[in-house]
Design a protein around this nucleic acid. Structure first.
Lengths: 201, 201
DNA sequence: TTAATTTGCTAACGAACGTTAGGAACCAGT
DNA sequence: ACTGGTTCCTAACGTTCGTTAGCAAATTAA
């Protein structure tokens, strides 16, 4: 009954520490010797667990990407629901992923460009598809009158801007929970959701 | 070869090329040899014009910071105008700086953390003051009823998020000019302004 | 007990890094 | 003709980089 077992494998510890360092100092500016020091071991020892520095970045970026994609899929499985509902669910899911692991999210958002081919192209493609899905939901929501904004394309940009900025300010002990953040975003950027009254103008 | 006279001094060329590279690949991932190659010279030659790599980053960051601060000062010199007008002018100025040099702005926004002390602290302090000024303008605009938002603090975050995101999508040949971008931002994030406000250029 | 796996070390590799020294060509103004 | 500034070169410096090889201790599985 070891209640204090190391719940994280060494490899997972490396991933976690690397994530924090990559976020704090940037991927390119983080050396393997720094990472090793943060783990309390020597640089060479890391290579008993991973193949390369970039493998660390790759795993972080694509794991977070998977989480975003899975959330989007879950939010939009029921084709019957109106676009605005899909969008609200998708934003909520996105915010929850961001909040669950702000470090990994920040790395995902800012350090992916240091991936090399072919991973880089694969990543960009995932990203493009994800953004396109949001653009579509917003466009359809505006088209059917549930969302109100003078410029759907601009609203999409603003939404992604706000989502990307979130890891910069979010603190777990803040006053807003994930659901409230998602609500604020939807309200502020898209005139809220249809609550019975939907009237352009 | 030189059909056009070099309107830019060599030092200015280095600054410009470094700005583009720092933006594209990141400060830490850009080597002096890369920079030299982009300029068509050898790495050592750069040091006839600058003292260090960080000096390049320092100059870029603080030059853009100066432009932002100057714009804010100009936008708010007339103490009589309502806060909402100050804000609208400040946003407009900010957008114009971002657009005038998107490369330098992107470096300013994303690479400043690679500054070392004491420049780093100085930079962060400038940044804090700048953001506080916007927070105040928004708060006062909401207080006097000119701006409408359910959560002024959140609106401030969203505004900065959108401003920070701008260099990521802005293209000079796009359909929105600076003034329209500033207008969209104010409208979308802050319920617009009282009508009839005209901007100094 | 034995075998395999996990984990870590020391020492070093070749490559790339930022930077410097010292010299040479060019150009401007005197 | 001389001077001072600008520009760039080659060659190298000491350092740090990501990574590997080879070995050893500890832990786990059989």
């Amino acid at each position: 009954m070891e209640s204090t077992t190391p719940t994280l494998s060494r490899k997972a510890q490396i991933d976690q520490t690397a994530t924090a360092l990559f976020r704090q100092r940037g991927y390119a500016a983080t050396s393997m010797r720094e990472l090793a020091a943060a783990l309390g071991i020597e640089a060479g020892s890391i290579y008993s667990h991973i193949r390369s520095k970039e493998e660390l970045l790759h795993r972080i970026c694509f794991r977070v990407a998977d989480e975003f994609m899975a959330g989007l899929r879950t939010a939009t499985v029921d084709d019957l629901a109106p676009a605005a509902v899909h969008l609200r669910r998708a934003i909520d899911s996105h915010v929850r992923v961001l909040i669950r692991d702000t470090d990994a999210s920040a790395v995902f958002l800012h350090e992916w460009r240091h991936l090399s081919e072919p991973a880089l192209s694969e990543f960009v493609q995932l990203q493009r598809g994800y953004e396109a899905a949001f653009r579509d939901m917003i466009a359809r929501g505006v088209a059917d009158g549930a969302l109100r904004t003078p410029d759907p394309a601009f609203a999409t940009l603003t939404l992604f801007a706000s989502l990307t900025w979130l890891p910069n300010w979010y603190r777990p002990d803040g006053k807003l929970n994930p659901d409230q953040i998602a609500e604020r975003l939807t309200d502020q950027l898209l005139g809220g959701l249809a609550t019975g009254d939907h009237l352009p103008t």
